[in-house]
């Protein structure tokens, strides 16, 4: 029995390690290129000698830290805006019975089918009309919209699972809607908030298409994704090593966020998707 158990565990680990290898392979390649010397193109050859030069170059000769800071500011603010936006909207969609609710909810899901990346001309016009061009505020707003619409399905599903009885008990005790939301619903929805927060962080941190079109002036005002991209086609010729080095450092904050919050994250996502 014991040996059989051990065998099963062994097999499980073999599977997990296999998947880990498959998952990690491209990243091994990224690391090789980031540290590799004399890399021409990405698929040409495996580098033979290694150096820290690209990391040094990245930190000294580009606005890398500035880009990271920009992205961080954008992402953190997006998280704040998205969490507020999602909780208010989801509260209304989940807790209030009102005319047009189902249609509205379906509508919010449906418009996401439209590939926004193809309508950059229109997005640009909106930005221009509002004076949001070349401003971090603009990117924060648009990222918050992207994140909120994308997350409303999960968030509503989660909110629906919080029993109504508690609300009603509180209302009988004379609590106002605001108190109920603030003191009862939101604390219960903490896992959902974590999801919304992490996902909006990832969305805002990695957004490229819109940012690259509306941030036209100044090398130091760009978010990280756009700055990194400019290193492939810009200042340093086709410098893949620099790009990969940037991608590695750039992803560290997100991995830290994920690692430290994964308990909430996993718990939260689950219950959200149970019944939506």
């Amino acid at each position: 029995m014991k040996s059989k158990e051990r065998l099963t565990m062994g097999i499980i680990h073999v599977f997990l390690i296999l998947l880990a290898v498959v998952t990690l392979t491209p990243f091994v390649h990224i690391v090789l290129i980031a540290f590799g010397e004399n890399v021409i193109g990405t698929g040409v050859t495996t580098p033979q000698s290694f150096t820290l030069r690209h990391f040094r170059l990245l930190l000294t000769e580009t606005h890398f830290l500035r880009w990271m800071l920009n992205s961080f500011i954008i992402a953190i603010t997006t998280v704040a805006v998205a969490v507020v936006l999602v909780s208010i909207s989801v509260y209304a969609l989940s807790r209030l019975r009102f005319y047009g609710r189902d249609h509205l909810f379906r509508g919010i899901l449906l418009i996401q089918v439209f590939p926004l990346t193809l309508a950059m001309v229109s997005i640009f016009r909106i930005f221009a009309a509002m004076g949001l061009l070349n401003r971090l505020a603009g990117l924060i707003v648009v990222n918050a919209v992207l994140a909120s619409t994308g997350l409303i399905l999960i968030a509503k599903g989660y909110f629906d699972t919080i029993p109504l009885d508690i609300d009603e008990a509180a209302r009988i005790d004379g609590a106002s809607r605001l108190t109920i939301l603030w003191k009862i619903n939101l604390p219960l929805a903490k896992p959902m908030m974590t999801i919304v927060a992490i996902q909006s962080f990832v969305i805002a941190y990695n957004e490229y298409v819109i940012s690259s079109s509306v941030m036209t002036q100044g090398l130091d005002r760009m978010p990280l994704a756009v700055g990194l991209q400019s290193m492939i086609t810009g200042q340093y010729g086709t410098n893949w090593s620099l790009y990969c080095a940037g991608a590695i450092i750039g992803s560290v904050p997100m991995l830290i966020v994920f690692y430290s919050l994964q308990k909430y994250f996993i718990g939260g996502l689950t219950e959200g998707s149970v019944k939506s």
Partner: peptide, 19 residues
Amino acid sequence: AWLLLAPLILLLALFYLYP
């Protein structure tokens, strides 16, 4: 409800419906 949803709807109108 519509009042609560107004900010989201407004933003959606700008960044999804208008495009």
